[in-house]
Simulated scan of single mutants.
Amino acid sequence: MDNPRRILLVDDDSGIREVARTVLEMVGGYDVETAASGLEGLEKARTSPPDAIVLDVMMPGLDGPATFARLQEQPETRDVPVILLTAKTQAADRSRFASMGVAGMLPKPFDPMALCDQIAGMLDWQP
């Protein structure tokens, strides 16, 4: 692909950021930028909107749902699809997140080998 799709990965866990980034770049061929907090993610998304955002739900300070709400308020990031990365997989949590208008949800811990296919499937991206 001449111009790889850009994904912004926002997670406060450096280990998760590193594993996901490596897999998305090496296996998926994506251009991945990372952010360690909701505020950092908002700033990076606003200044250079990615093709998609993978956003951790539970982070200190500005959590995933609050970050998503702010992304929706900004014209630069309103149309960027967001996939939530969450350990909260109870039906009530899934229902609440789905009602927010996110593109999808990935369970935590995720399967690194399935990550690229899962993201591409949720966003309807062709390989």
Rank of each mutant, 00 (worst) to 15 (best):
R46T: 15
G64A: 12
T77E: 04
P81V: 08
G28K: 10
D13M: 10
M58E: 13
E40N: 11
P109G: 07
A36V: 08
D31T: 11
P81F: 03
L39M: 11
V10H: 06
D79V: 00
P107Y: 01
P65L: 12
R21F: 00
F97N: 01
R46K: 12
K44D: 07
V19M: 14
S48W: 01
V19E: 02
V32H: 00
W125N: 04
A87T: 04
Q90S: 15
A114I: 01
D2K: 01
A36S: 15
L42Q: 12
D79T: 11
L115Y: 09
S48L: 11
D12E: 13
A91C: 01
M122A: 12
T34C: 14
M58W: 05
Q90Y: 03
E76P: 02
D51I: 07
M122P: 09
R21W: 01
G64F: 13
A69H: 09
L62P: 11
V27C: 05
M1S: 15
C116Y: 03
P109H: 09
M122W: 06
L39I: 04
E33H: 12
L55N: 09
V32F: 04
I119H: 06
G38S: 10
D12L: 09
T22K: 12
K88M: 14
R21Y: 02
V82P: 07
M1I: 07
I119W: 03
F110R: 04
P112W: 02
G104M: 05
L24Q: 09
T34W: 01
L24M: 14
A87R: 08
A91D: 11
D11W: 04
V10M: 10
I119P: 07
D111H: 13
G28Q: 13
A36E: 15
T86F: 08
L115R: 13
I16P: 02
M1Y: 09
K108W: 04
V23I: 15
L85S: 13
G121N: 14
M105T: 02
K88E: 08
L62A: 12
L39G: 10
E73F: 05
P65G: 10
L8D: 03
E25F: 02
S37Q: 06
Q74P: 02
R21I: 01
G29H: 01
G15T: 14
D56S: 10
E40W: 03
A87P: 04
G28F: 00
A35D: 09
V23E: 13
L8G: 05
F68Q: 10
L123H: 00
R78N: 09
I16L: 08
L9T: 10
D63P: 07
L106S: 12
R46N: 13
D111F: 01
G41F: 03
G64K: 10
M59F: 07
E43W: 07
R70G: 01
P127G: 12
D93W: 05
Q74V: 08
R70E: 15
V32I: 10
M113G: 08
I119K: 08
F68D: 06
D117W: 00
R94S: 02
S99W: 05
A98M: 10
L8A: 12
M100T: 03
Y30D: 02
I53R: 07
D111Y: 03
D79R: 14
S14W: 06
